[in-house]
């Protein structure tokens, strides 16, 4: 009886629960008192202008950044990398693609958490990596030097590297940035497949136009939490205006304007 009740709680608890999170760089808050819950088995987008703290939120959940205040719970517990609850996909631009290594090796890096210190990837890890590459349609590129990949291919490799982490929750920082339309479609198909397997996926996303089509939930963020909930409830003109500051109308209309507008916003945040 008790065990049954416990199981129910496990299934309804948020995959990620962030309470009163404040993160600051040198006393300047990048995130102000953010509350955030990611429900299990959903695709959730974090959306907001540049400098809104989207990547910071993800890094704080992972413990890469130390919050000034607040608490992060992952599946009801404080997060430790050793729990291997979270597979992380950093921004594609955050790594050096001229690094002397090939596609298979990059995917295998996703396995390092399971291996722990000192142990090297085994034959099984390799065949698992091959499976993951097949899933993202990159099996023909196994031995390709990573500098020879296109942006879309790099992103697929990163997704394969997330698959091999075999985690219940995935945090992805702009998985659609700089990929062509075909790749974008295939990546979203992969994310949906993760969802049907019971995984929780949280993505930093930039394109307001595709939000409704791709995601179940969305959090609008601009240093503070603006809104959080199912996409259709959150995506109101009013909320967008609050997140993007009065420019929501043409933000929702045009992607390019979005980019220029955001960079302006970023510079004003930094100065």
């Amino acid at each position: 009886m008790n065990a049954h009740k416990h199981k129910n709680e496990n299934e309804t608890m948020p995959a990620i629960e962030v309470t009163d999170l404040t993160v600051a760089y040198r006393e300047k808050p990048v995130l102000w008192d953010v509350d955030f819950q990611a429900p299990q088995r959903q695709l959730l987008a974090i959306v907001g202008p540049n400098g809104a703290g989207k990547s910071t939120l993800i890094k704080s959940i992972l413990g890469i950044l130390k919050p000034a205040a607040g608490r992060v719970l992952v599946m009801g517990k404080g997060y430790r990398p050793q729990s291997r609850y979270i597979g992380y996909v950093p921004q594609r631009g955050s790594v050096d693609w001229d690094f002397p290594t090939n596609v298979l090796d990059v995917v295998l890096m996703g396995r390092y958490g399971h291996l722990g210190w000192f142990r090297r990837p085994s034959k099984e890890d390799r065949s698992f990596a091959m499976e993951c590459l097949e899933k993202v349609g990159m099996a023909d590129f196994t031995n390709r030097q990573i500098s020879q990949l296109s942006g879309g291919q790099q992103q697929r490799v990163f997704i394969a590297r997330a698959f091999i982490q075999d985690a219940p929750i995935y945090l992805m920082d702009e998985p659609f940035a700089g990929v062509d339309a075909t790749t974008e479609k295939s990546i979203i198909a992969l994310l949906r497949e993760l969802k049907t397997k019971g995984k929780t996926v949280v993505c930093v996303h930039h394109d307001l136009q595709t939000l409704k089509e791709y995601f179940d939930y969305v959090m609008l963020l601009n240093v503070r939490r603006v809104a959080l909930g199912p996409v259709k409830d959150v995506l109101t003109q009013d909320n967008l205006r609050r997140a993007y500051g009065g420019r929501a109308a043409f933000l929702a209309g045009d992607k390019d304007e979005d980019g220029t507008q955001n960079s302006k916003e970023a510079s004003s945040v930094e100065s």
């Binding site: 990398p81 992380y88 955050s94 790594v95 690094f99 890096m109 996703g110 390092y112």
Partner: peptide, 9 residues
Amino acid sequence: FDAGLAASL
């Protein structure tokens, strides 16, 4: 190669 991933693992 990827300090962010390394930290998360």
